[in-house]
Design a protein around this nucleic acid. Structure first.
Lengths: 140, 140
DNA sequence: GCTCCTGAGTTTGAAAAGCAAACCGACTAG
DNA sequence: CTAGTCGGTTTGCTTTTCAAACTCAGGAGC
């Protein structure tokens, strides 16, 4: 997504964020991940719940598999059918989704206030904290 | 970015994440925010450091201003020149960028390991924690 | 005044990505 | 033999992105 050949006259930062967005910033990519967190693993379910066109979804799934964020798992040999599951790298995207959720609730209007993940017997309203790894102190 | 009129046969989730990505998932949007965190506020600087085409950048800045994530500030009347600054909503995107940074470092190869923000006299290597607002417990 | 220069955009025309709907292959159920 | 399901691919069109050129408002040097 980020340009591999920088535009003339620009010197894009070599940046971890840009690198991540190159993969995850593509349209539908994070919604696919969200849907897998929700427990929907089949192509048709992901398409339906995200709203992504099937061809685009097909391309995204392929790219996410190649990047190691998700993996294909055969759940039926006859007929041959595959489902998609998060890898550890994919599960590690939870903080990104949580941060987006928190921000959206804080700053976007008329959102449904529905929490998105079950925790113990209640539901999670996530709080995302950023700390400094070196000193452990919370960062603003 | 997310479809306003759901595709036929799909029922996209009414979702805080999708809502946020509708704004922030557009190409270059989060890189603009990153650049403002880095302290570059002028059009030409943002264009150069992100690599975004000027017309797209112009459109993104306008949309982010409309959404209240950033604001225009006149820094010169003659000639008329405006710079862009984060609003509180924009600053509150820090956890999103931190989460992306952390994920990128964990899972993407050959990233520059450069920390991205100064903290006290050292630099931050951010740790993002997700907790349950209700019980305070850390969530996996 | 005249000629460059800077900064913040807009315009232009072509290339890439996204879209919806139709189609395909491999089956299963009736 | 027909209809339906699932996991995609193909098709034809629309929208977005892109790079380069251009505009507008002034500033600097001469």
């Amino acid at each position: 997504m980020a340009p591999l050949t920088p535009a003339a006259g620009t010197t894009p930062r070599p940046c971890t964020i840009a690198h991540a967005l190159d993969l995850l910033g593509e349209r539908w990519a994070l919604l696919v991940v969200r849907e897998l967190f929700w427990g929907n693993h089949r192509f048709a379910d992901i398409a339906r719940h995200t709203g992504a066109p099937r061809d685009v979804l097909s391309a995204r799934l392929r790219r996410l598999v190649d990047a190691g964020v998700i993996e294909k798992r055969r759940y039926s040999d006859r007929p041959p059918r595959d489902a998609y599951h998060l890898t550890q790298a994919g599960r590690d995207l939870a903080p990104v989704l949580a941060a987006l959720t928190q921000w959206s609730r804080q700053h976007l209007p008329t959102d449904e206030r529905r929490p998105n993940v079950a925790h113990h017997d209640h539901e999670i309203d996530p709080v995302v904290e950023v700390r400094c790894r070196t000193c452990g102190e919370r960062v603003a």
